[in-house]
Design a binder for these strands. Sequence first.
DNA 1: ACGTTCACTTGCATTTAGCAAGTGTGAATA
DNA 2: TATTCACACTTGCTAAATGCAAGTGAACGT
Lengths: 142, 142
Amino acid sequence: MQVIAGYGNGVSIQGRKRSVEPEGEPARSPCPVSCSLDVLGDRWTLLVVRDLILGHSRFKDFAASPEGIPTNVLSDRLDRLLRSGIVDQVPVEENPGRMGYQLTKKGQALRPLLEAMRDWGLAWAPGARALRGSVKTPRSRP
Amino acid sequence: MQVIAGYGNGVSIQGRKRSVEPEGEPARSPCPVSCSLDVLGDRWTLLVVRDLILGHSRFKDFAASPEGIPTNVLSDRLDRLLRSGIVDQVPVEENPGRMGYQLTKKGQALRPLLEAMRDWGLAWAPGARALRGSVKTPRSRP
DNA sequence: ACGTTCACTTGCATTTAGCAAGTGTGAATA
DNA sequence: TATTCACACTTGCTAAATGCAAGTGAACGT
């Protein structure tokens, strides 16, 4: 489901802005870990968040990431991220009328989680290695 | 696939110890976040790790968690966790001959990740609330 | 005006999740 | 010893999600 051009909430600009309806499924339990996994628990969602943290903002950029997310899955994940308030849409600077994605406050709050995941991966996952342009822990300037 | 009684690695004790063969799929990319998600990226795996951190060690305990993991999925996740070296099996203390699960060092290293997930859930997930016996940040004694 | 890029959608085969029921072994009980 | 019970799974089946290739239409560049 993805209403493209409609009245009501999520006013469309040239058939590009998705309508953002609140959300779907009920939580499996009140456990905060479980609730987080209800939103983030799959193989792709956090990779999109990673890309957003790295500064990517457009569909093609997410699709071009080395893991190769299928476009229908990407479309679905962006939709969920919008509905759960982790990202929102803004007109692309160099090209208004085209929409890009960015993290909301709620989404930016995922940075420590991504960093923990990166750290564990570096320490314990066999094939992982530090990458140019990977998520960095912010440091106070010297 | 789950060899129950066999010679070779993973010597069985009364048909309860799973054979632990290295692992399956190749990494999607060398990104440490992606590599972590290759192992942890689904709706159940980290809930099992949470239970292990909470001190649970047996199949029935995981199965009894409020999220209600199906037993076939639980079986599969324990298998993967074993193969990826995040948990191992030990005889249950009060009842040797019965096997329980526990975190390895690699698995214990997931604690910061779980804590980050708990923190984000508490701060941003609608239905989340702190639970008795939930994952706690260890504090230095006063 | 025309072709290209972009952001998706659609169709379809394969895989995984979810549910209920069944199986074999060890432990407890009669 | 025979029965029952609990436990740790497995099996079978349906529904949903994933993965891949191809298609669509608005926007952009020329």
